[in-house]
Amino acid sequence: MATHEEITGSLQAFGEGYQKNKKLKIMNKDWDRVILIKAADVDSQHTLILKNGELTVTEGTPAGDPDLVVTADSETLADLFYGDITPTEPYMNGTLVIKGSEDDIVRLDFISLMIWGE
């Protein structure tokens, strides 16, 4: 089981990877989304905000309703955002549950692919 701090660390690593990728920022310029990341086994919630191509990570829930809700056990979330596993594997076995539009879910996977590779 991962801790809240470890998930925060993984999201920061994800955010740093995103910041380094200029192309990704340009591609997401028109994709403004609020993503809630929830751990199913520990009390841990984070919010990813994409606005004008910039990504910010905050702890806790968003002010309004999110566009996407990503839920998984803490271990999976930490591994996922550190890029040690692809989102598709836990998604296909049901460990990772994402609520939101299918297009947004695919876009999130694309972003992960571009940050961490295959």
Binding site: V34, L36, K38, T61, G64, D65, P66, D67, L68, V69, K99, G100, S101
Partner: peptide, 9 residues
């Protein structure tokens, strides 16, 4: 934990 609502449904 209360159920989270999405922006678009």
């Amino acid at each position: 934990m209360s159920e989270v609502q999405l922006k678009k449904v």
